[in-house]
């Protein structure tokens, strides 16, 4: 089955040839139309290229401006800035390790929760739910993306944090918290706020991003592929797991990156529920901080070296994202290679 399934990423070589002007296919040099077509094609291609380069320019510009803005701290303090977890605006000593740690942990929690949840939603909306229910439910879930992030923050602060404090935290502390090793992750006072709460709120925020991309791409799977599998007696689950998911894998991963990107950079929602302490604690129930919430918290009042340190944090977020995405791609490539050998 697998060989017969075109992977969206590795499209047959024929298409790489598309970048040639089409006019060569319509071999009639004297034909005006083909000449105009060729010119239009070149023009079109040029415009598209410029647009793509704009993306490049935006990212490079933003990254370089943070590098420039944070130069005093990045080049002045060097490794100390990366390795230290001390953050002291009064004495102008800054270390970025606590925010980096918080960013990575909360995003990881968010992805671990959001990916299976989104997959379930996409599965439900493309295969399980009755037809008339699919569009309304899909629109409703997309609406989760429309809620401003400050509202996630306020809802988290006023409603979800007390809920976590009253129900989830004590439960975790008395069950998972008792386990050896893993237990350390779930022990702590029932404050309600902290890394876990922030991770859950992030997960809710990125579910609509991941699930709507998954749903869209699941729908693009040619019906004949699914139909033939059903005809062979496959169950719905088997069709989705063995046919739909491999066919759309590249795009699904794209959707996950979309969510991961949002989780890494999300600010307001996290700031209100994370506890904002420059601490490194093993427990997910304890407060922490993140790169973007540190910036959002302190930027408005910061001057001098303090401001430079915050902009340098912004640059570090670019670096952290770069590294995270690079690792993710490596993992995918090795996964692909394994599949190729099998």
């Amino acid at each position: 089955m697998k060989e017969g399934t075109p992977h969206s990423g590795g499209v047959p070589g024929f298409f790489t040839g598309l970048s040639m002007p089409i006019a060569t296919h319509v071999a009639d040099p004297g034909n005006d139309r083909s000449r105009i077509d060729a010119r239009n094609d070149a023009l079109f291609r040029g415009i598209l290229r410029v647009c793509a380069l704009l993306v490049l320019a935006a990212l490079l510009g933003a990254a370089l401006s943070t590098l420039w803005g944070g130069r005093e701290v990045l080049f002045g303090d060097g490794w100390h800035f990366l390795a230290s977890s001390q953050w002291n605006p009064v004495e102008n000593r800054y270390g970025a390790w606590a925010p980096i740690y918080g960013t990575l942990v909360t995003s990881l929690i968010a992805i671990v929760i959001a990916v299976p949840l989104s997959f379930g939603i996409a599965l439900c909306l493309t295969e399980v739910a009755p037809l008339w229910l699919r569009t309304p439910v899909a629109t409703a879930i997309e609406l989760l993306a429309a809620i401003p992030s400050i509202i996630y923050g306020m809802w988290g602060l006023f409603v979800f944090v007390p809920f976590m404090a009253a129900h989830v935290d004590p439960m975790l502390d008395s069950t998972l918290g008792r386990l050896p090793f893993v237990g350390a992750l779930f022990r702590g006072p029932p404050l309600g706020l902290g890394l876990l709460t922030a991770g859950i709120v992030l997960a809710i925020m990125i579910v609509p991003f991941i699930s709507s991309v998954m749903r869209e791409v699941f729908q693009t799977v040619p019906a004949r592929l699914k139909e033939s599998a059903y005809a062979l007696g496959s169950t719905t689950w088997e069709v989705v797991w063995d046919i739909v998911l491999p066919y759309t894998r590249q795009a699904v991963i794209g959707g996950i990156f979309l969510g991961l990107g949002r989780a890494l950079g999300e600010t307001m929602a996290v700031t209100f529920v994370l506890g904002n302490a420059y601490d490194l604690s093993a427990s997910l129930l304890m407060p922490g901080t993140s790169i973007s919430s540190s910036i959002a918290n302190e930027f408005n009042e910061a001057v001098g070296l303090h401001r430079s340190a915050l902009i340098a944090l912004g640059f570090l977020l670019f670096v952290v994202t770069f590294v995270v995405l690079l690792i993710a791609r490596r993992m995918l490539r090795s996964l692909k290679r394994k599949e190729g050998n099998a």
Binding site: Q86, V90, N297, E301
Partner: peptide, 14 residues
């Protein structure tokens, strides 16, 4: 003293 300091203890609310 400062608009932001290194707090010896506690949690931060925005």
């Amino acid at each position: 003293e400062g608009t932001a300091v290194e707090w010896p203890t506690g949690i931060g609310g925005k």
